[in-house]
Write a protein that binds this DNA or RNA. Structure first.
Lengths: 202, 202, 202, 202
DNA sequence: CATGAATGAGGTTTCATTCAT
DNA sequence: AATGAATGAAACCTCATTCAT
C-alpha cells in the first residue's frame, strides 16, 4: 500500500518533469513559469510545490538526469580490446552521446542554449561536467600520443575543440528542430574531421 | 553647441552601456536588473529609459556591436593573394576573431553563455549570425574542395564543427576568466587541429 | 466495545489537543500551523480534520476548557460563612485562579497574549468572559459597599483594575516562563494591594 | 528641491501609516493584509513596498511611535517639587498616559490586544518596554518606602499590578470603543485604588 | 477511522516601466 | 535631459482544507 503511494507520488513527479521539459523546450527556461508547467501537467499549483521547491529545482533535476545519461554513455577506451579498434570505440562513444542528445532534443536544447547563466550553482555544476569531459578527452589524447597514434598538440586545447564541435553540431540541430537522419554517419564525419583533419592526404 | 549636446548624450549612452556590460558580465543577463545597471552607471532610473527603450534593447545593442565587430574581423580569403597563403589568411581570421572575443571577455561570455533563450527575436538574430558564419565557412570549404585542397566531406557539418571548436575555446576561457597568453599560438593550434587532424602523419 | 472506541477517539482528540497546546505555547497561535500540530501529535493531516473542523476550533476548545476551569474556580462569597471571613474567601478565589493559570502556563500565555484579534467570534467570547468577571467583581464590591466594608468608588472601574492586576501578574510570569514559588504569598500580596492600597496606614 | 522630495516621500509614508492604523484598528493586525492597507491609503502595491519592507515593519513603526510617546509622557517624580505633591505628579503621569492611549484608540487596541505573539522580535521589544515601566514603577515604590509613604510590599509584584490595572482600563475602553468622558476622573480613581485600596478607612 | 497527496485561494513580493517635477 | 517616486502586472509561494484510497 505504501509502495503504491510511493509509486503514485513518483508518477506525479514524472508528470511534472515531463511537462517541464515540454514547456522549457517550447518557450525556454526563462520565459517558462510555474503556471505554464502546471497547466501542461494538469496539476494544481500546490502539487507542484509539494514535489519541487521551485522552478530552478525542476530544471536542475532534468539536467542532472541528462548529464548522468551522457556521462554513462561514454565508456573508457580499451586500448587492448580484442575486437574493436580504438577508433571504433571512440566512434561508438560519439554515436551514443549524439543518440541521447538527439533523442532528448528539448532537453539538449536547454542544456546547450539555456543552462548557462541561470544560476551560479548551476553554472558550477555545468563547469564541473564539462571539466570532467575535457579531462577525459585530453587524457585519452595523451594516451594516444604515448602510443604514437596522436600527433604532438596541446591536448587540453584540442579537447576543448572536440567538445565544442560536438556541442555545436547538436546545438544547430536542436535549433532547427531537425535531427539528422543517420546519426552513425554524423559520428563518422565527426571522427574523420577530428582525427584526419580537412586537408587532403598527400 | 549642438554637437556638444549630442556628444554629451552619446557619453551618457556609453556610460550606461558600459555599466550594462559590467553588470551582465558579473551576474548574467537574467539576474541583472535595471537597478544594478543604473547603480553602476550612476544615473537615475528615468535617465536609463530616456536612452533605451528597455533592458532588452541595451542587451541587443551590446550584442549587435560585438557581432558586427566579429563579422568585420573575418575577411574573405583571397585564393590568389600575392603574399599570403590561404592557410595564413584563415589563421589570421581566427586570430582576429579570438582577439576581439578575448578582449571583450564580458561581452563574449554573454554572447556564448546567455544570449540564447533571452527572447525569440534575439534567438532569431543569433541564428542568422551563426548561419552566416556557417555559410561562409562551408563555402570556403567547398572552394577548397574544388581546389583539391580539402578532402571530400559534408561541408555544412564540418563548418558546424569548426564554428563549435572556436566557440568552445572562447567559452571555456571566459568561464575561467583567464584569456590565453598567446592568442596567435591558440589560432595556430586551431588551424592545425582543423586542417591536419589529430592522427600522426604516416 | 463502543465505549472503548469512544475512549480511543477521545484519546486521539486529547493527543491532538495536547500537541496543539504545546505548539501554540511554543510559537504562538498565529505562527503555529496544522503541520506543526500534527507533527507534534504524530497523526496524519486527515486525522486532524476528522476530529476538528479546523485550526480555529482547536484553539476555541482549548480556551473554552481554560475559561470554564477559571470560572469554576471562582466561588461566590458567602457573607455569612461560619468559618471563613470574606477576605479569606476572596483570597482563596485568587489563589485558585492563579493556581490554574500558573499550572497551565502555555494555555494562559495564549489566553492573555494571543487570544485577542484571532477572530471576531473569539473576541466576542472573550469579551463575554471578561464581562462576566467584571460584573461578578463589581457586584461583590457593591455588596461590600453596602456592608460598609468597601469605600465609595466607581465599582466597574475598580473591577477593571482588579481584573487587570491579576491578568498582568499572570502574563508577566508566563512571559518569563517562571511561575512564582509561593502562589499563596502572591495571592496575599494581591489582596493587600487591592484592599489596603499602598500608602502606609497612619 | 531635494528637501521637497523628501517631504513628499515622508508624506507618502505617513499616508500609508495612517491607513495601516485605520485598517489594523478595524480588522486587527492579523486579519489585515497589505491589500487592505493600500486600498485605504489609495496607493499602489509597489508604493507600499518602496516604503516598507512588509506589513510587520509597518506595525513595528506604529508601535515604536506609540511606545515612545507613552514613555515620554511619564516624567520622573520630583520628591522635592516646590508646587506639586508626589501624588499629583503621579496622577498627572497617569493622566498623560491615559490621554495618549485614549486619543490613539486604534493603536492602543493593537498594542494591548494584538501586539503579543505577532513575532518573536516584537515580543522582545514589548517585553523590554514593559520591563522598563515595571522597573520605573517599582523604583518609585521603593523611594516611597524609604520616605515612609509606601507600606512594606513586594514592589515588583505591586508594580505589575499597577501596570496591569492601567492596561486593563485602557483595554476595556478600546474594546468597547468608548473612551471615558473624563480622563482626569479616571486617573483620580486609579490613584485612589492603587494608593488607598478599597477598604473603608477606619 | 486513518492516511497523506492534491488542491487552489490568498497572500506576498519583485521589478520593468511610466510620469510628474 | 535628468530625476526618482509611483505604478501594477506578473510572478512566486504557503498552507488550511479536501478527498480518494
Amino acid at each position: 500500500m505504501e509502495a503504491m503511494a510511493v509509486k503514485k507520488k513518483e508518477a506525479r513527479r514524472d508528470q511534472i518533469l515531463d511537462a517541464a521539459v515540454a514547456v522549457f523546450g517550447e518557450v525556454g527556461y526563462h520565459a517558462a513559469n510555474v503556471a505554464d508547467i502546471i497547466a501542461k501537467a494538469g496539476v494544481a499549483r500546490g502539487t507542484f510545490y509539494q514535489h519541487f521547491e521551485n522552478k530552478r529545482v525542476v530544471f536542475d533535476e532534468l539536467l542532472d538526469d541528462l548529464l548522468e545519461r551522457v556521462r554513462d554513455a561514454i565508456v573508457d577506451v580499451d586500448m587492448a580490446h580484442p575486437e574493436k579498434t580504438v577508433y571504433v570505440q571512440l566512434q561508438e562513444n560519439v554515436e551514443r552521446v549524439l543518440g541521447i542528445l538527439f533523442q532528448e532534443r528539448a532537453l539538449a536544447r536547454i542544456l546547450l542554449a539555456e543552462a548557462s547563466g541561470v544560476d551560479a550553482d548551476l553554472d558550477l555544476k555545468l563547469a564541473g561536467f564539462y571539466d570532467g569531459l575535457l579531462k577525459l578527452i585530453s587524457e585519452t589524447l595523451q594516451l594516444g600520443q604515448m602510443a604514437g597514434m596522436v600527433r604532438a598538440c596541446d591536448t587540453v586545447l584540442v579537447a576543448t575543440c572536440i567538445l565544442g564541435s560536438v556541442k555545436e553540431l547538436v546545438y544547430q540541430h536542436t535549433l532547427r528542430n531537425r535531427p539528422p537522419a543517420d546519426v552513425a554517419a554524423v559520428a563518422r564525419e565527426i571522427m574523420a574531421y577530428n582525427l584526419q583533419g580537412l586537408f587532403t592526404r598527400r
